[in-house]
Nucleic acid binder design. Structure first.
Lengths: 202, 202
DNA sequence: CTATACTTTAACCATTCGGTTAAACCGGAT
DNA sequence: ATCCGGTTTAACCGAATGGTTAAAGTATAG
């Protein structure tokens, strides 16, 4: 009785995500998805009519997971220092487990404007008023240099996300491959909050 | 007599870069490149035998321009503060003029390992020993918190590059579109060096 | 038993796309 | 006049690919 959302469908979605993320929409082959799901093309189309349709499922699902629980932390009651530490830890832990989701999402968004809507739609509403209030209070008190919430957020996300998006490039330029890269990330997790918070001191 | 490297060839390369950067290797269509160059498919293959061949030209050329003159500045004689300001200014000016080159390069590198070689080959040798010496001196003097040259570089590049790579995403999340985005970047150019340098204070 | 949903097999269609070919055209250099 | 490289036109090829179809097998629930 349709218990657990159907095993085959699950296998298809997993395979599709793997292939789409690895190859992008244009590079992905339906045949490959079928093979990786352990089924055949006919059944694939039986479940998901078109490539476009399947892709949209995957994209929405991946986009939804791109910022895991950060919104809650950022608009919570903790002090800024606490928030920054928690967000960075949470986010980089997540990225270590899913290192190539962001590159996929960002790239597909660059290619087709329509995906923007899907992306926005998949996001919970981003409420940052409490964070903004905290920042403004600090600035007014002179304990933080003037900074907009936008700038704050972009810096935060840049520092977390970029190394994963550009991983092969960093590998090539700085010789950060595999284990070296993992070490690098571990070190980064330790240093980044202090670096970021320090940068905001007046 | 073969004056200026051939006009048609130039037009083809320009069109190819435009299309490849916009659509990626798999998304790009030879027909479209021909059209955008104002010629036809036959002539396109007359100049560049295969899509792969044409792509490699473009990729190498674009990769070569991805870090314009940063190496020279970073290993120069100036003080670190001066270097950081110059690098950020130079780089972000460049990125304002070529906002989508990095996304293209990084993405293609993510898709096919072989491109790493091409990328590395297109880079001048990256010498950072003088910068490293400066950092170490500062750290030893207690005027800078301990940081590796790698971490220094990744932070620097992250903060400059990421907003351009993720431009549509930032547009969607933070409402930074077009003019707003340009303003944002201008503001960023002013604030970023101080933020970065400040982050390294002990 | 039988209806129904799931699954396989295998062939097939239409389109797209990279790439080729052949013929003719054109302009400038010799 | 002729030669030649660049250029166009237009047709064509072959492979890959998204998608369809028909027929048959399997399982399970009623």
């Amino acid at each position: 009785m349709e218990e657990e959302e159907n095993d085959t469908q699950r296998k298809i979605l997993d395979a599709a995500q793997s292939v789409f993320v690895r190859s992008g929409f244009h590079g992905a082959r339906m045949e490959e998805i079928a093979r990786e799901a352990g089924i055949n093309k006919a059944l694939l189309h039986y479940y998901f009519r078109t490539k476009e349709h399947l892709f949209q499922m995957i994209f929405a699902s991946v986009a939804r997971r791109m910022f895991p629980r950060l919104s809650g932390i950022l608009n919570g009651e903790d002090e800024i220092e606490e928030k920054v530490e928690q967000v960075m830890a949470t986010y980089m832990d997540f990225l270590e487990r899913h290192p190539n989701l962001p590159g996929f999402v960002i790239n597909e968004m660059n290619r087709r404007e329509e995906r923007l809507q899907q992306f926005v739609g998949s996001l919970g509403p981003l409420r940052l008023d409490r964070l903004t209030a905290q920042i403004e209070a600090r600035v007014a008190a002179g304990t933080m240099r003037p900074v907009t919430t936008e700038m704050f957020m972009v810096n935060l996300v840049s520092l977390c996300l970029f190394p994963f998006i550009a991983r092969p490039m960093l590998g090539a330029i700085l010789g950060l491959k595999d284990e070296r890269f993992d070490e690098f990330i571990e070190q980064r997790k330790r240093e980044l909050p202090a670096f970021f918070l320090n940068g905001l001191r007046p």
